[in-house]
Design a protein around this nucleic acid. Structure first.
Length: 269
DNA sequence: ATGGTTGCGTAGCAA
């Protein structure tokens, strides 16, 4: 079972690039982020006609996640538990029925968290957008812990908006006061990992300079000024099934690209 | 260097 995550930065803007990549990469299931569309406006028929099951969790203008699958999906859930007042569409779950195993897939778009404000002691304040990010990560930790208790294969795939370590950025020194790289952000990411999840790309591609995002601005792609912020976390039962992984970097050089590229794993399932 | 670019939606925000 090939599982991919791809922040497409707007479904309307990717109506050519996304089907082209799907045809080329042939994943079985894809978690999409930043569809930037309400459910009713998602071009469902276009993908269904190409053979995809489509489950969306959208909102107007911003955010929005979806799952495309060639395999059957069961028990689809929308929204991250833990705050009924949270209206941002950033989480979708489904059970993917593979040939030999079922896999619980969570597609996530973790809040960016910028801008960050700092107090008199130059510490980041846990309020505003950054406070929302940290609170969201604590809710995700609780959900990730509940899913571990099922002892089923679980994959947490998406745009985490977290640079885990300095080697995951071409210029880490420029990110030190950014919500993607603050110590508090990285610690919150480690708290999820340390429940017992495996970070698939780091496990299989431990070398520095492996990126998944290059900003549209200031020639970031041409200068290879990238960061690695799209991740797939595997429960122990999923990690046991891991046979391969990769990053489709070439997509960033294609026609009208997203600023993120697809990241994928292969599971024996 | 307070620049630079893209998407959504059609102004200005988010990233």
């Amino acid at each position: 079972m090939k599982i991919a995550t791809f922040n497409i930065n707007g479904i309307k803007a990717r109506l050519e690039a996304l089907p082209r990549w799907l045809d080329h990469a042939r994943p079985d299931v894809v978690a999409l982020q930043e569809i930037k569309s309400v459910d009713e406006a998602f071009p469902r028929a276009l993908f269904e006609d190409l053979g995809w099951r489509v489950e969306t969790h959208g909102q107007k203008g911003f955010n929005g996640v979806a799952i495309l699958s060639r395999l059957p999906l069961e028990d689809v859930r929308r929204g991250l538990p833990g705050d009924e007042s949270d209206e941002q569409a950033r989480w979708i779950e489904a059970t993917v029925i593979g040939e030999s195993r079922a896999v619980r897939l969570c597609g996530l778009y973790l809040p960016n968290g910028n801008p960050v404000t700092f107090d008199a002691a130059d510490q980041p304040e846990a309020s505003g957008k950054y406070g929302y990010k940290l609170a969201w990560m604590e809710r995700m930790r609780a959900r990730a812990a509940d899913l571990l208790a099922t002892e089923e294969p679980v994959v947490l795939a998406g745009d985490y908006n977290i640079i885990p370590q300095p080697e995951d950025a071409a210029r880490p020194e420029t990110w030190t006061r950014d919500a993607l790289f603050l110590p508090q952000s990285r610690a919150a990411f480690r708290r999820i990992l340390n429940l017992g999840y495996t970070e698939a790309i780091r496990a299989q591609h431990p070398q520095p300079g492996v990126y998944t995002f290059w900003d549209y601005q200031a020639g970031a792609w041409e200068r290879n000024n990238g960061i690695r912020i799209d991740h797939l976390l595997l429960s122990p039962q999923a990690a046991d099934l891991l046979t391969g992984s990769g990053i489709d970097k070439a997509e960033r050089a294609g026609e009208k690209p997203s600023d993120h590229v697809p990241v994928w794993i292969e599971l024996e399932a």
